[in-house]
Amino acid sequence: MIKESAYTFKILRYDAKEPERRPRFCTYRIRVIPGLTVLAVLLRIRDEIDGTLSFRCSCRSAVCGSCAMVINGKLDLACRTQVAGFNTDTIILEPLPNFEVIRDLVVDMTPFWQMYDKIQPYLIRRSHAPEKEIPQSEGERRQIDQFVNCILCACCWGACPVLAREPGYLGPAAAAKLERFVLDSRDERPASALSLVNDEKGVWACDTVFRCIDACPKDVRPTDAIVGLRKAMVKQSFKKILGKAKDET
């Protein structure tokens, strides 16, 4: 027999369509077997206790990025977080910060996707495509590895202190996506493409306090991307100045 343990789940509930009802914690007591994830318990609460509870989920294996939330103060995917991983029998769940809540743990991710769209998140090529693959060495492929792993779950967005005070900020994930292409040996975007994020709401807004790195469930380091993009921009502007100086002589 597997021994069950009793847990208390406190979940922050709110419905944007009923703004008069303030955000409030609902408490659920549930017995769980060892090895269960927070998502597995959320599903049981919804299925067996309270069908009105709203949260996103899909793959349950930490690849689709649906179930990011705040779990006992820590940003993570509910599907990969073990209930028994905290030294307490109380689990507190809150929606991702820095977003408007639609309902319960479901937030409106529109601003996140707008920033994603903004940075031209696709490979840009100017030369003709070869008949077969564009050659890329193993080393070149490794360059983009960590950024390719991003699942767009927005844990980094929720963790970002800049976004908490500056809602128009680019955010860590979009910067990581841009760097993924800038570093890709096959990408041929013009240098001017960086100007999209070369301002005080772009990469220069970052405090470089690495909260996004701590929050990322896939070991992506968005701050590396931001620092890399800044360096590329500085290099570009030096080139411009030098180029100009050359013209003048």
Binding site: Y122, L123, R125, A129, E131, K132, E133, I134, P135, Q136, S137, E138, E140, R141, I144, V148, F181, D184, R186, D187
Partner: peptide, 19 residues
């Protein structure tokens, strides 16, 4: 597969640079 590669799909590579 070549089309997806041309569109940016980051396949793993062999030492000779092929998919």
């Amino acid at each position: 597969v070549y089309e997806m590669e041309h569109w940016g799909c980051p396949f793993s590579r062999f030492p000779d640079g092929t998919i």
